[in-house]
Design a protein around this nucleic acid. Structure first.
Lengths: 142, 142
DNA sequence: GTACATGCAAATGCTTTGCATACTC
DNA sequence: GAGTATGCAAAGCATTTGCATGTAC
């Protein structure tokens, strides 16, 4: 296990276990979004006895430490990702793919929202659009 | 049943049943957000035999006709509301209250998002912030 | 009369929880 | 050694589905 995958946990007081470390490694090595089940499948290749309840509990610990954020984008189960600058998600209704805007674009939108929410103390912003991604759009119009 | 609660269903080809009409009436008479269970409780006062599965199926019909939109804001079950101009939701983590920005403010944010999502054909935009509402903020800071 | 919606009951899918054991600090 | 995380099994909650009956058109 590379140190860059354990250090963030130690820094934030998250007890380091193989389960947590590999789950964090999976999330931190990708800019993608994973369901608990997807993480379970991946990490089980390394830790065969891993339980999905442990995945949920690990994600809770990582989210509590601010390393991971969860979202409910459209239908289906929650997705988890390594925390980065807030960014809007684009969810394709056809293929289910989740992409995200770059954080500059995201930042402009989020600033606009912040400016409107006086009186409310925002802790977390969630922005997503559902629709058709470029690929599915092309093939449906093809 | 007032005509203004049945006419929108007829216009859109949604078969009118007492269950659907009263569910729609509940949603259309309020600018609030309801879970399926909340709607069930309210409408059961008028239609005592109402099943929650019927609530879900009615909401699906109303949503399919474009009269109702559903959102997953934060934790907990989905909420449903009568469709109006798209607007961001503000969800208080403390008291659970869901408020929304007025549609002018919402529109500006949503336009900003639209402008960034080229290539993606947006069908539905979802924007919500979780945090503390003014009331809970005041009482927590005493 | 035909097609569709409802009630009822059971099943599903995702997520959480209790408890004994194992591990981290 | 003390406190916490894990595996395992079971429960929980929100939501969906199958089927017979009832209702809207």
């Amino acid at each position: 296990m590379e140190r860059r995958f354990t250090e963030p946990l130690r820094e934030r007081g998250v007890r380091i276990t193989p389960q947590r470390a590999f789950i964090w490694q999976t999330l931190a090595s990708s800019d993608g979004h994973f369901t608990a089940e997807e993480l379970w499948e991946r990490v089980r290749e390394i830790l065969p006895g891993l339980e999905i309840s442990t995945v949920y509990r690990s994600l809770e610990a990582l989210a509590g430490a601010g390393l991971v954020v969860e979202s409910r984008v459209g239908e289906g189960p929650r997705v988890f990702e390594a925390r980065s600058a807030p960014h809007p998600h684009l969810v394709c209704e056809e293929c289910g793919n989740i992409s995200h805007l770059d954080s500059a674009a995201g930042g402009r939108i989020l600033e606009a929202l912040e400016a409107e929410t006086e009186g409310f103390r925002t802790r977390e912003l969630h922005v997503f659009a559902t629709g058709l991604c470029a690929e599915c759009l092309a093939s449906s119009e093809g």
